[in-house]
Amino acid sequence: MEAVVYSNFRSNLKDYMKKVNDEFTTLMVVNKNPDEDIVVVSRAEWESTQETLRILNNQYLREKLIASRKEIAEGKSLQRELIEV
């Protein structure tokens, strides 16, 4: 994770926003007081993280995911070609 001081972040906000979005990277913005540090992520990364948390916090979905991964590991899954419409 890249870190940048607040003043540099503020001066180059547009560039940092572009970098976070284009490179799908996380940026830590640090200040003199560590309690005021923040982390900047792209909207896509935020939504992906929220979806992962939603799945992991849902017992039914979590168990379904674990069972599916087990089937794949044991070779009990089928691979199929996608049909393009």
Rank of each mutant, 00 (worst) to 15 (best):
W46A: 13
I66L: 07
K18W: 01
S68M: 09
L61F: 03
R54M: 13
S68N: 15
A67E: 15
K18A: 09
I38R: 06
M1R: 13
I72S: 08
Y16E: 02
Y16T: 00
F9T: 00
K64N: 08
V4K: 00
V39K: 13
L13E: 03
A3R: 09
R54C: 05
L56I: 07
V39I: 15
M1E: 14
E81K: 14
S77Q: 14
E71T: 10
G75N: 07
V40M: 01
L82S: 09
T52Y: 14
T26C: 09
L56D: 05
Y16C: 01
E2M: 06
L27A: 02
R54K: 15
V40E: 00
T25W: 06
D15F: 05
E74Y: 11
K19C: 03
K14M: 06
R80L: 15
N58K: 13
D15V: 03
S77A: 15
R54Y: 04
P34Y: 00
I83T: 04
E36M: 06
R69G: 05
S77F: 10
S48H: 13
K64L: 12
Q59M: 07
R43W: 12
D15G: 07
K70P: 01
V29W: 03
S42L: 01
I83M: 03
R10K: 14
R43I: 15
V41R: 06
I55A: 01
S77V: 06
R54D: 10
E2W: 04
N57Y: 09
V85D: 09
I83N: 03
K14A: 11
V30T: 14
I83G: 00
V40G: 00
Q59F: 02
I66G: 02
L78T: 15
R62C: 05
Q79R: 12
S77K: 04
Q50G: 00
